[in-house]
Simulated assay, not measured.
Amino acid sequence: MTRLTGRALRLTVFLGESDTWHHKPLYSEIVHRAHAAGLAGASVFRGIEGFGASSLIHTARLLSLSEDLPIAVVIVDTEPRVRAFLPQLDDIVTEGLVTLEDCEVIRYAGRGDDPGTTDTKGKKWL
């Protein structure tokens, strides 16, 4: 398992639910590429309403059902690993927004990890 604590970089890719890469959802391709690159993790979040560069509002409200709701793919890992992954996005993200933000990882643990792990400040987590 990847160990990740302290300073990190958060990569967020904002795109539309209907965006595809080779006939499959683009968000899924990004997650699979992140996994293959050995990044610490990736999560996909589906928005209920939003707009982007096109200025079209996409919403999940019943009267105006959208098939292109906002999607955010969030990846957190060390700065060198995230920056090394960016060229893979250049090939597949043609529309949308890609952002990078500094962050601090307080706890990164999977199922079955030791529950007595300490964080970056020496505090014991139960």
Rank of each mutant, 00 (worst) to 15 (best):
G122Q: 09
K124C: 10
C103D: 01
G6E: 03
D119I: 06
E49V: 11
A60Y: 07
G96H: 02
T5H: 04
G47L: 03
A8R: 00
E95V: 08
R46I: 11
F14G: 01
L62K: 13
W125V: 07
A53I: 05
R3T: 13
T120D: 09
P87C: 12
F45C: 08
V13G: 01
V31C: 15
V105I: 14
G112Y: 11
T120A: 12
V44K: 06
L26R: 05
A84Y: 02
F85V: 09
T94K: 15
D90Y: 07
R3N: 12
V93Q: 05
R111M: 15
T120W: 04
E17T: 07
R61E: 15
I75V: 15
S66C: 10
T78I: 06
E49F: 06
A37H: 09
F45D: 01
F14R: 03
R111P: 11
L9M: 10
F51R: 14
T99L: 08
S43W: 05
A109G: 12
V13H: 00
K121R: 14
F45K: 02
S43Y: 05
W21D: 12
G6P: 05
P87F: 10
G47S: 03
E17R: 09
L89R: 06
G112T: 13
D113P: 11
T120N: 08
G96M: 05
S54K: 11
R111W: 13
I57Q: 07
T59W: 03
K24T: 10
V73F: 04
C103K: 00
K24N: 07
S55V: 08
R111E: 14
R33Y: 05
R46V: 12
F51V: 01
V74Q: 09
A42V: 02
G96T: 04
S55R: 14
